[in-house]
Amino acid sequence: CATTPPPGMPSAGLMASFHLVGRISVRQGEQGFSGSLDWWHRPAADELQILSPLGQGVARLVRGPDGVSLTTADGVVERALEAESLTERILGLSLPLDPLAYWVQAQPAPGPLELLRRDQDGRIAALEQQGWRIEYGAWRAAPGGALPGRITVEGHGLRLKLVVDAWGP
């Protein structure tokens, strides 16, 4: 089970690939969904699957070289070039998938950084980028260094909470 990192353990370096299992809740105005999240991240591809508490599929988002597809529980498949516009159209909230792959690892995404605050162990406690504020907590020890167990992302009227149950390659 997740162990708290020893004081001073630096956070893990940027991982080009990861498998994240956790629980997610996203809200934007009246729209929102929550459930468990299964996220396979690779340099050129992503697969995110949201399951409801009792395990049935809510949505699956797949990113590949030629764009993004979103399949919902009723089997409808929609496509777009990138995740923001697709999730906006289908789920009513725009999910910043590309920067999110950095933020969940407590790493800044490419591009200008408005704020970066570190905690006493030198790990990122909060950062602000592209109008988003990301905060970290519940750090846990991992082979490559500490990884966050709780991530909140707020901005553009959207609030995302992610609790990570397991990090994997």
Binding site: R23, S25, P53
Partner: peptide, 26 residues
């Protein structure tokens, strides 16, 4: 009542279905 691996409760009170995730505070 889910106690492993995380705390979650699903309640039907006869009229509504409630799902409470403690870690997500939701």
């Amino acid at each position: 009542t889910y106690d492993k691996p995380y705390e979650q409760v699903i309640v039907g009170d006869g009229a509504k279905l409630w799902v409470y995730d403690k870690d997500l505070e939701q």
